[in-house]
Amino acid sequence: MLLVLEQTLNGIQFGVTLFLMAAGLTLVFGIMNLVNLAHGSLYMLGAYLATTFFQRTGSFLAAVALALAATLVIGIVVELIALQTLYERDHLDQVLATFGLILFFNELVAIVWGRAAIYTKLPPWLSGHIELLPGVRYPLYRALVILVGLAVAALLWLLVSRTRLGMLIRAGASNRTMVSALGVNIRLLYTLVFGLGAALAGLAGLMAGPIYAVQIGMGEEILIQVFVVIVIGGIGSIRGALVGALVVGMVDTLGRAFLRPLLATVLSPSAADSAGPALASMLIYILMAAVLFFRPQGLFPASAR
């Protein structure tokens, strides 16, 4: 029972990480109609930069702030140099060009940090546990990740639904020419949204660093899971991204933790041993197929955003 609680929290923690990625990606889809595969590269850079900044400065908070600022800047630079020209291109062009960017960033990381995975140590003040219930302990850092993720979700919701920038974002998604006619610099709006998405991806990456190994390819691995989130949630919908991320995070985490013992109750132990992990790794994709079968536009189509 305690294990279930712990794994559920892990699922939520993975879910909020997915959400931070999905939010930026889905906004960029919804508003600029751009498929950006290189979104995962920003996640990877966030993790690498935070690790290095932490080693250099000795302050975890300073490292977080620096890495966030850096991914924001990198995102804006990439948008200005490479992506602006892609908005009017078809999806195939966008996929290929951003695939090219991934190759570039992965190799850049290999040049700077080498090909071996690196590990981030947490500062002492973050490495303890908290007691959720009497006798139920949970790592402080993971709890913090959940809190930060949910806080960002709330802030994003406020931003999109309550501010002028959010109004423009929503209007820009449905009618570009109208927004430009209002005298708004739509290029600037796009750059801002893209930078925001980049910083969110960087945040997801830097928070994931101390939990998972920091390595080349980490960005694409999560990117494809984020695609599953977006397909399930519906493109362009922040709410869909949140629900999709939490569902995918839970299903994946709980599947990996409990599918094998669950199968062992009906199958022979050896069959469960081989089928369990295989099925667990396929679970979120099967879920995606099921959602698509019943709701081809995802759970929250963008028109209902």
């Binding site: 498929v35 999806h91 599953v228 397909v231 992990p277 994709y285």
Partner: peptide
Amino acid sequence: GVYFIMITLAFTQMLYYLGVSV
């Protein structure tokens, strides 16, 4: 459109993980 791209990518990744886990 975008859905088709993401879904074909996702299913291939699923088969990749299947290969990894067997």
